[in-house]
């Protein structure tokens, strides 16, 4: 049995896995564990090491592995290595096509959790305007977000594409990402206090949130399934959720007891007149009559 301690990033796992694979070490003989030290950001991969055999695996496996690496489950490295082994030495080239296989299923579920976390980051990051660059004139925004997994790098490309025309930083406890109009770069994680609590627009946004809510269709559980409470503390609109729920019963009662209004006569308007003409079916003048 051997123990492999790695920096918890995909590249580190790949490096070790290639080595173990070239030594034909079966998965049952490896114990994987995360290096507890803070990962050295940008530590360049040691290119001098002799390249271990690059195993021939489906591209979809590498995509999955990149995603799974961002998860925090301690078993992820060993499951990844076991699947790698089964793909290359177990004569199971088609393993990833077999979703009901426990290992494949486990990888799929981790990928799904990571995908969801990335999606929620794209959805729930809220930028605050902090200033304007005096030279370039570009607006500067900062956001604070707490993802469940280490997904900042996987999620960053989306923000670059969407917000290319402004400067922004997204700060998280693990890692921060910054865009200045020309390049993305990453820095170590920080604490919440580095970001302003609110933005001048938040109140207007809450006005919108309040008005777009239909109290007649209250479905709190459906909301929470998609917007779990753990995200609420960083969402400006969440502060009025309980108030909206509490008011909804009274608002509905009021609607149900409002007296119905009769139709008002149509105003004089040329356009309405033309619609009325179009809407009145006119018997074709020269069509043959249906009368016997």
């Amino acid at each position: 049995m051997r123990t492999v301690v790695i920096e918890p990033v995909f590249e580190a796992w790949r490096e070790s896995a290639r080595e173990l694979l070239s030594l034909r070490v079966p998965p049952s003989e490896v114990l994987w564990s995360d290096d507890a030290r803070e990962p050295a950001l940008f530590a360049p991969a040691n290119e001098n090491l002799p390249r271990a055999v690059v195993p021939n695996v489906p591209a979809s496996f590498l995509d999955m592995a990149r995603s799974v690496a961002a998860h925090t489950d301690v078993r992820r490295w060993s499951v990844l290595y076991r699947v790698l082994w089964r793909l290359t030495h177990g004569d199971e080239r088609n393993l990833l096509a077999i979703s009901p296989d426990p290992d494949t299923r486990q990888l799929q579920q981790w990928c799904k959790a990571i995908g969801r976390d990335i999606h929620k980051m794209h959805a729930f990051v809220r930028f605050r305007l902090v200033g304007k660059d005096e030279i370039t004139g570009r607006e500067q925004f900062v956001a604070w977000f707490e993802p469940e997994y280490r997904i900042v790098r996987l999620a960053a490309g989306f923000f670059e594409k969407r917000f290319a025309g402004m400067d922004w930083s997204i700060l998280t406890p693990h890692e921060c990402v910054h865009w200045d109009g020309s390049a993305i770069h990453f820095t170590p994680g920080v604490s919440r206090s580095a970001v302003p609590d609110d933005d001048a627009l938040d109140e207007l946004w809450r006005t919108y949130y309040r008005s777009i809510f239909n109290p007649v269709r209250l479905k709190v559980r459906a909301m929470q399934a998609e917007m779990p409470k753990k995200y609420w503390k960083n969402l400006p609109e969440a502060s009025i959720i309980s108030e909206l729920i509490a008011e909804s019963g009274g608002r509905v009662d009021k609607m149900l007891t409002t007296e119905s209004r009769p139709a008002k006569p149509a105003p004089k308007n040329a356009y309405l007149e033309s619609l009325r003409k179009m809407n009145t079916p006119q018997p074709p003048s020269d069509a043959p009559s249906n009368e016997p």
Partner: peptide, 11 residues
């Protein structure tokens, strides 16, 4: 992307 959800469960 659903950026928020209202208490009516709508995105």
């Amino acid at each position: 992307i659903c950026h928020s959800y209202a208490p009516d469960g709508r995105c």
